[in-house]
């Protein structure tokens, strides 16, 4: 464990909690892409299947349980509890455009052709594109509430910190996970234009982020 990965995990947890609290307190999921949240729940489910078979550390196990619980709670709030506030016509990204290439690639590029390893690879590739429906919704509606942008900021920052973690681990322990690194870089690149908008618009106290 290193400070970059720990900071990344904290940012990830903060992002998930920000979104969950926003939906719970505003009792609404307007402006939130339910599809992205479903994809994140799938990411955690397919990545943490070794929850009961591989023990890394108490921290690792606890965080996996927390991420699974919070992501399913978020999906529950969107599609069950506050479903009447869910505007599905704005959440119109075609998930098959993401799932088909990601499934295909995880069968082609993986460390081992075993169910667990293919599912882990699938979760890594899926995570890199899971935010697409949310970013697509924002470009479609032309705006995002500031809370949603803070959520996206921490979510983007988490994987950027993981890149620093991979650089650190490469130089200190020779660790290099090519699938995770390539996918993590692609994932972070998707956030770059959002980061620019976030810094220039939201942090200047404009409240809402309105796209040009």
């Amino acid at each position: 464990m290193n400070i970059f990965r720990l900071a990344g995990d904290v940012c990830h947890l903060v992002a998930i909690i920000i979104l969950l609290l926003k939906i719970w307190r505003s009792r609404s999921c307007a402006g939130i892409s339910g599809k992205s949240q479903v994809l994140f729940a799938i990411v955690f489910t397919t990545r943490y299947l070794d929850l009961f078979t591989v023990f890394i550390s108490p921290y690792n196990t606890i965080m996996k349980v927390v991420f699974l619980a919070l992501s399913y709670a978020t999906v529950y709030l969107i599609y069950m509890r506050f479903r009447n506030t869910f505007n599905s016509e704005n959440d119109s990204f075609r998930l098959e455009f993401l799932l088909v290439p990601v499934i295909g690639l995880s069968f082609l590029e993986n460390y081992a052709f075993t169910p667990l390893e293919i599912l882990w690879t699938f979760s890594i590739f899926l995570e890199s594109v899971a935010i697409m429906p949310q970013l697509f919704m924002i470009t479609k509606t032309g705006e995002a509430e500031s809370i949603t942008t803070h959520y996206l900021f921490f979510l983007g920052l988490y994987r950027a910190l993981y890149i620093a973690n991979w650089v650190w681990r490469y130089h200190t322990e020779g660790f290099f996970d090519q699938i995770a690194v390539v996918s993590g870089v692609v994932q972070t690149i998707f956030y770059i234009d959002f980061f620019y908008l976030y810094v220039t618009k939201v942090l200047r106290g404009r409240g809402k982020m309105t796209l040009p």
Partner: peptide, 10 residues
């Protein structure tokens, strides 16, 4: 690509 023995990251 080096094959990580096990996935110790979240």
């Amino acid at each position: 690509s080096m094959e990580p023995l096990r996935h110790d990251e979240l």
